[in-house]
Amino acid sequence: MSRIFASGNKNIIDLASRERPGRRKVVEQLFDEHARALRHFLLGWSIPPDEIDDVVQELFSRLLGVERLEEKMSDSTGSSRSYLLTMANNLIVDRRRKLQVRNAYAAEQRGIGSESVDERTPERIIAAELELEAMRSVIKNMRLNWRVAFVLQRFGNLSYEEIALHMGVSVRQVDRYLVRAMRRIREAQRKIKAAGEKSC
């Protein structure tokens, strides 16, 4: 693992890798290959420096436990770098959600009152399912080139260069397709949010 992420307590990793010694090597290789990309990704996410080690260790540990990791990282199923970043993103989002719940609970205990955060109430679960369904529809109704680029990147874990090769366009064009696709998704997000606020 790159030295940038190597400091701190690695107990979690050590524990997790006892059962899968071969897997540890694969994950270390993944981190070594994409240390720079991961560092930039975390910087972009604005992860505080004192949390970076925790994030990296937790990510490492999650990857050790992923079923058929080698298959998911093989060339035929996309870029290992993209897969690593997707896993990192999911992890960061999970951590943020947990932190928000903890903060809300702490505020409630102190009697400050806090905006209800992402507690897994039935209403919230239904709302999340509806939002997912809305996103499926947004993707389905995008212009085909935007949709193809977006799906290949998000669900195929392809790099932008690979997407460009598949689609027969420049990498810059892939960037543009993805920007437009993201714009559509954000527009839908705004509408869903506005509708949610209205119904409250």
Binding site: I92, E131, M135, L144, R154, G156
Partner: peptide
């Protein structure tokens, strides 16, 4: 938006998305 992207991972196994990943050239 990053949260939405994470949530959208649940759509990875959608039939149409799998078809695009498998054979985007044919779809286009």
């Amino acid at each position: 938006s990053m949260e939405v992207l994470a949530a959208m991972e649940a759509l990875a196994n959608d039939g149409e998305h799998l078809e695009i990943v498998r054979d985007c050239r044919r779809v286009v």
